[in-house]
Every structure is written in C-alpha cells, then in structure tokens.
C-alpha cells in the first residue's frame, strides 16, 4: 500500500496572534512553527502504525509551502515516513493547495491520502474533501479509527451526535482527528535518520485560487470579570438569570 500524509505548518498553539501590514498579514515574528497537531498526532502517527504493521507500506509526506516548511517536514520525517515532497509555493487558498496535493497524489498513485481534520490556523476543514473531489475519490471525514480489513478500509468517523462505521475500497481520502492514534515523540534514531531521508522539492502545478484574505481582525477584549463571593453562590445564579438572561 502507498500512503500520502498531508503535513501543514502552523503557529504553535501558544503563539501570540497579531497582525501586520494594516491587518492584512499574520505577524510571524518570533512565532514558533509546528506541524499542525491533527496532521502530526493523528494522520501521521496512524500512517506510521500501518507501516509498522505492514513494512511493505510506502509512506510519503507532502507539504505545500516555501523553504521555511523544511524544519517541520524534517520533524515529521523523524517520526516516520520514507520520504517527503514539498511543493514549492507560498500558500494561497485551500483550493490552490488542494490542487497541488491532488497533482502529487495522482502522479504517485497513492492508495490512501490522510489529512488532519483541519488546520489550527485557518480552520478550513476543506483540503481533504477538495482533494477527493479533484481525484473523484471517496472521502471519509473526521475519522477516529482506521483499519484495513479484507483489503478494504474500515473507518469509524464522527457524525453529529455519534459515530458511524464505514467501509470503502481503496483508493480513498480520509481526514483524521482524535482517537486515530496517540501522539508520539521522535527519538534520537528517528531524528538522525530524518536528515538523510529524501525531501523532494517540486514546482507547483498551474491552479487558481477561489478566495483570498482581505483582512484580519482580533476579537474585542472582555470588559472584565464580575466576581461573586464563594459564600453566596446563589447570587451568581441570580445574576445569570436576571442580568445576563442566560437561562
């Protein structure tokens, strides 16, 4: 089996969110970059587990980004995977990114494409579905469990208010979330090995963008907390009922 895992670079979860150039750009000065947690903890680790269970599995990683993505790609390779492909372009919108990934997935004839359920910066939840549509493949989103049974993919996915178990033939696209796997820490052997794994840089395919970011905005600051004494919790209930009209 050939697996392609999509890896996105996002600001660390504690990064200060601020904007520059008249609120048109994310202020990235001093920001630590990480692999998007959904891509790393769930998609990548589950793919590594599949390779561990069947060593004939070929596992490739793909990132759409500029050279400043290389550190997070190396970190992903330190966790596992045979090689990485970076499509050398500044990120545009999700349709453009999905078009790049679809081109790579098609060229490499992968049986399985894994993405995270969303990125923690743009929260689009759209790359997986777009890649699947571009390739005319089934797409199972919000997967919490993935196994291969009798040559088919068996996937448990989250639906509104519960879970659904699905079965589909390969090839397919799956977006991954919590439950798929447990977070791993790269070990020394992995880190050393990652340095010599191939990182292929390819030029982007021609594709459009359908949307663009006009500007950013920060939410208004809170007015400040109104504290109620621990001696009179019923006063909190009264305030929520009468003042905030919350119930």
């Amino acid at each position: 089996m050939k697996i392609l895992v999509c890896i996105s670079k996002t600001p660390d979860t504690t990064a200060k969110i601020a904007f520059a150039d008249n609120n048109t750009k994310f202020a990235s000065d001093g920001v630590q970059w990480i692999i998007n947690p959904y891509d790393e903890w769930y998609a990548l680790v589950r793919a590594i587990e599949l390779k561990e269970a069947d060593p004939s599995t070929v596992l490739h990683l793909v990132n759409v980004g500029a050279a400043d993505s290389d550190p997070i790609i190396r970190k992903a390779l330190a966790l596992g995977g045979d090689e990485a492909i970076r499509v050398n372009t500044e990120n545009a919108d999700s349709f453009y990114i999905a078009s790049q990934i679809a081109a790579i997935a098609k060229e490499g004839s992968y049986d399985l494409v894994f993405t995270g359920k969303e990125t923690i910066d743009y929260n689009g939840s759209s790359i997986g579905g777009m890649v699947a549509e571009l390739l005319d493949l089934p797409y199972i989103s919000h997967a919490v469990k993935f196994t291969v049974e009798g040559g088919n993919a068996v996937v448990v996915r989250e639906i509104e208010g519960g879970e659904e178990t699905d079965k589909a033939a390969f090839p397919l696209v799956v977006s991954c979330q919590k439950g798929m796997a447990e977070q791993r820490i790269p070990n020394m052997k992995g880190i050393m090995g990652a340095r010599t794994k191939p990182l292929r840089v390819v030029e982007p395919a021609a594709a459009d963008s359908l949307t663009s970011i006009a500007s950013f905005e920060l939410p208004p600051a809170k007015a400040g907390v109104k504290l109620v004494s621990a001696e009179t919790p019923e006063e909190l209930v009264r305030l929520l009922h009468e003042e905030a009209k919350a119930f």
């Binding site: 919108d93 999905a98 689009g124 579905g129 949307t211």
Partner: peptide, 23 residues
C-alpha cells in the same frame, strides 16, 4: 458548518468552482 457540511462543502466547492468560506 457541522460535520456534514465539512464533508460536502469542499467537494461542492471544487465541483462548482465556487469559493468556499467555512466557519
């Protein structure tokens, strides 16, 4: 924008070449 929409809207965006704003 629930789990159903997240499964369909991106596909529809590609099929119709319609820009998608999710969230």
């Amino acid at each position: 924008n629930n789990t159903t929409a997240k499964a369909i809207a991106p596909r529809l965006s590609v099929k119709l070449k319609a820009g998608l704003v999710s969230g």
